[in-house]
Amino acid sequence: MSMQAALPVAMIPGNSIIHRINPIAKLVWVVGYVVLAFSTQNIVVLYSMALFALLLAPIAGITKPLLKGALILVPVGSSLLALQIIAPAVERPWTPVGEIGPLTLYGDGIYYGFVLLGRIVASLLLALVMVMTTHPSDLFTSLSKLKVPYTLNFMLAMTLQLIPVFQREVGIIMSAQKSRGMKGKGFSAVLPSFVPVFVGAIERVQQLSISLESRGFGSNGIKTSYRQVRGRPSDWVIGIVGALALGGLSAYSIWRGTWNISSDIVFSPLFVVVTFVISATLFFGVVLFAVFLSLKK
């Protein structure tokens, strides 16, 4: 079983410019993105950030997996927008723009809805680009250079390793239970397999710890690293430019008091109604699809 098959989001091997950027430079950008996304309410900035992240995908050759990973945004984004239209997170009074059945739609929250969505979209897309173009070991090696404790690093790496292993173990245990006549549908089938999986996990961890200790894991001398991560001048430039640009924009946003431009943008009632219908349909579509999938099993 390969990592790629087991994890929905994993590194896509490649040798593009994006792949070759130093993990720390990428990390600077991801952190910068998150900081800027949460310090500004300017939707132009937010969606430009998302667009920029999206443009990196074809360069890295990860367009398809990126869009697949970004599918998670559909239920999140659609519920966010639909809720902001029927129950704006701004102070009353709200201006009704239309009614659908028992629901009254308001235009006041839609700007904020787009801000929230933009924050998630921008941060997630860039984070996905980073995860998909960085070998986890390179990332952990870089982190240890930044003096992140070895044990903590190892724990992070180990978790990534164990996910596919446990997925497979749950599969084996569920098959065993089904073959003994246990009903196998949805969550109620997964639950009884937890105990054997956890017991197995404890046994595995104990043996692993003995095996690791037998290879000098706990040694407190100087440790070296097999993976060599280079920091070329271009990586420094990318990191510094990212820190300055994103940090600068964040500072400007905060100075402008979140840089909210909602007063400059007027959403027509029709736009609000259409947005609501689309996002509500998407959201219930996803919910129905999930229900359908769980019943089909």
Binding site: R215, G216, F217, S219, G221, I222, K223, T224, S225, Y226, Q228
Partner: peptide, 9 residues
């Protein structure tokens, strides 16, 4: 094991 023993790259 080599990393833990501090063996150079």
């Amino acid at each position: 094991g080599l990393e833990n023993a501090g063996v150079p790259y």
